[in-house]
Amino acid sequence: MHHYLEFRAIHYSYRGGAEALRGVDLRISHGEHVALIGGNGAGKSTLLLLADGLLMPSAGEVIVGGIKVEQSTLHVIRQNVGLVFQDPDNQLFMSTVEEDVAFGPRNMGLSEEEISRRVIEALRKVDAEGLLHRDSFRLSGGEKRRVAIATTLSMTPSIILMDEPSANLDPKSRRRLIELLRAFDHTLLVATHDMDLAEELCQRVVVLNKGQIVADGKKEEIFRRKELLESCSLEQPYAYR
């Protein structure tokens, strides 16, 4: 599968609510690290949920590696797209880290040996091997975040979507996370308010405001546009001020 992600004329409305996305067109190529920035309620999380088929668009289509996201393709899509939720507590629901990281591979119907191998490998990648037998809900914020990433890595996805990965992290954990994500060779789409994280991690920045893409380009171009960022309830990264 070619690891690209494409949104074509996407509209999405929540039941009884306003339109969350209004005609979003976006293509993310293989291996790109893209930051999706925007204020609260801009539609960032909705776009990520659509990319993983957890929500279906009201209009338009989402294409992952040439495959349209629809009910019949969800099994393939979810093996190739890993979604890391904003709140790791929502991602970690089993009693131990080991069980949590093994959940995805189990759903893929792998053998017990392969599951164990993948669990160790995923935890090693996020530098969390020592947490294997720990209770998921007794980890620190940074540990939870790394384990949450491991739960998707164990499924060996080609595309990773992350929703506010640096939320609630202390500076040291945040730094560790940035180093970890920089080393990824996956196609990466990061929805964030954290301008400095976006600046360090991504080459391309997409600005979403009120359900529409208002800017899309190289990070240097976008982050220099102070007025644009402020009009979207954002601010420039520290390096651009």
């Binding site: 957890l54 969800l74 979810r78 709140d87 929502n90 995805g104 759903n107």
Partner: peptide, 13 residues
């Protein structure tokens, strides 16, 4: 509801 999403995102059917 969120847990259901998290589970489905990891291939649960």
């Amino acid at each position: 509801r969120t847990l259901d999403m998290a589970m489905r995102a990891r291939g649960w059917q």
